[in-house]
Design a protein around this nucleic acid. Sequence first.
DNA 1: CGAGTATTTGATGCAGTTCAACGCTCGTGG
DNA 2: CCACGAGCGTTGAACTGCATCAAATACTCG
Lengths: 242, 242
Amino acid sequence: MTIHRLNCPLRNKELFAAKSEEDLRQIEQFKKGELQIEEGTTLLMEGSNAPQLYTALTGMGLRYKTLPNERRQVINFIFPGDFIGLQAAVMAEMQHTVVAATDMTLCVFDRAEFMTFFRNHPERAFDITWLAAVEEHFLGDALLTIGQRSALERVAWGLLQLYRRAQALDMTQGGQMPMPFRQQDFPDALGLSLVHTNKTLGKLRERQIATWRDGALSVANPSALAKIADVEWDELAERPFI
Amino acid sequence: MTIHRLNCPLRNKELFAAKSEEDLRQIEQFKKGELQIEEGTTLLMEGSNAPQLYTALTGMGLRYKTLPNERRQVINFIFPGDFIGLQAAVMAEMQHTVVAATDMTLCVFDRAEFMTFFRNHPERAFDITWLAAVEEHFLGDALLTIGQRSALERVAWGLLQLYRRAQALDMTQGGQMPMPFRQQDFPDALGLSLVHTNKTLGKLRERQIATWRDGALSVANPSALAKIADVEWDELAERPFI
DNA sequence: CGAGTATTTGATGCAGTTCAACGCTCGTGG
DNA sequence: CCACGAGCGTTGAACTGCATCAAATACTCG
């Protein structure tokens, strides 16, 4: 088991802060095992009281919330390194649902041991808080986008977020990244209709800025995207992982 | 100084988890002092690298982000008990601006000591993470609201959030609460225009559900609001404070 | 090959934006 | 003490970006 962790696929990505073997051993102790799930699997349910927490090791997923009237808001897309289930660990229950968009490998932790782990390893506790702060930052940006930007700006912003994360994780190749999400997921994240999102993507395709087709997103001109979205194109900051 | 903290105005509110004298002493050690600021003061600036952190003790404020083209998104309203500056403490800098909407009293902490405090007091560290998770929860709800709900639903949801927090803090009296915010702040929080928000508030006024006038919000029928917003009207869960 | 699902495109309608104007309140200065 | 202007709230009228409706085209899998 220890071998697993020391082989942690996150460890050598540039995006993540370097960890000593001792650090990894701490995490290893907390770790219960690894979990393979298939595309489409619901990992955590809104309102549920999950006994386990996860870190995504490989694959992608998404978090969403639903309204009684069937409307759905995608909160965030999940990439390797994301910590899943903090709300369940800290508060009573999850406030959103998590599903796998591809097959995924997850690092599994036990919620019952969370408090002990948190107490005994302040550096790790700090990392968890860091991740929570990063998430808070992202959600603030998303709120700004949905609340204030036009459809074209939103779409550009959304593609840029995805592309930038993929790039930081070495998931891009020649401006291409895998896009396992259904097109419906994207408007649900941006607060737009499917039809209008599709037409907007069409504009970006015509202008040869970005193309989403056949499960892949290819971004020919990231700075044009950034200009449309009215954000600076900066690299993602290094972040910890658990 | 110790006397201050033991007199902490948050301590005896029902909303907040009870803390022992020992707990308070820990926080007291971390505390640098109290700060009085006037209505309109900007406490933290987006992009700034603040040396201090705060907990709101009295008064109200708001967090917002701006776009280059002047558009503004209000991220959240600040009430007593809110922790301010976590992002600056953990990451390099603040991602949003914080301003006071009324005169405020703040509990001041030193960012340089944050790491030490976090390490030495795991229970407090846990509380901070809890607060971060609560914020994440709120932001997810806000995203759902702005992304998926109609104007009337959004306004009802927004009023309900404000009213519910005020109620949990004993700031209401006979269905009334103070509303120090300018009407522009509200549409900026909901992703609507000022004009349309005003007209929507007018509808709620006509229907005698809620009235916002002269710096006070009076909610005659909270469950009608909840029904319009399509949420359940439940009490806020007890939460920790720092 | 046919049924179900995802993407694309065209046509129509409306919720919410934008523009515009007026009223109220309060502070300032003549 | 009143005139004036600035800031905020309210209301009316016209416009438009995006939603909704509709339908055709691709793709997947039994």
